[in-house]
């Protein structure tokens, strides 16, 4: 079974899915992420699925679980780069992923995470100076 690598990027974790996801890989990723959020004190998780050509109900459920789980650990999750064909299929399947924030690409996803992190203020140990101010309105209208 392949494992999906989890990278640290500032105070966020970046998961870039490049393989055909097998169910066990999905479950392992969920566990890995929970551990890494706690270990690194990350404030955000970015899941880049621009290379993923199908999302079925199992994978879709993982996004919802990771979002819920990271929220419990005081981190935001943003799913980025969903392809149009995948989005159309998910809607047809009846899965609209409530509670999962989304963005067009990694850059915009990072912007959402920074804005959220700024709103909540840094964790006690954090240095706030790597936070970049965002445009008025935040560009964070999507998702929700």
């Amino acid at each position: 079974m392949e494992r999906v690598p989890v990278l640290s990027l500032g105070d966020a974790l970046l998961v870039s899915i490049q393989v055909d996801l097998q169910d066990n890989t999905v479950l392992a990723l969920q566990e890995d992420l929970a551990e890494r959020i706690v270990a690194t004190g990350a404030r955000g998780v970015l899941i880049d699925i621009s290379a993923v050509d199908i999302v079925d109900s199992f994978i879709g459920r993982m996004f919802a679980s990771i979002a819920a789980l990271s929220r419990l650990l005081d981190a935001e999750t943003v799913v980025v780069g969903m392809r149009p064909a995948v989005a159309i299929t998910l809607v047809e399947l009846g899965l609209s992923l409530p509670g999962v924030r989304t963005a067009l690409d990694v850059e915009r996803g990072m912007r959402i995470l920074r804005a959220a992190s700024e709103r909540r203020g840094p964790r006690p140990a954090d240095e706030p100076d790597d936070l970049v101010p965002v445009a008025e309105g935040g560009g964070a209208a999507a998702g929700a």
Binding site: M82, L90, V91, S96, L104, A141
Partner: peptide
């Protein structure tokens, strides 16, 4: 309606 929801899944409004 589905298009609006699909756009949202992609991170757009």
């Amino acid at each position: 309606l589905k298009t609006v929801v699909a756009a949202r899944l992609m991170g757009a409004e």
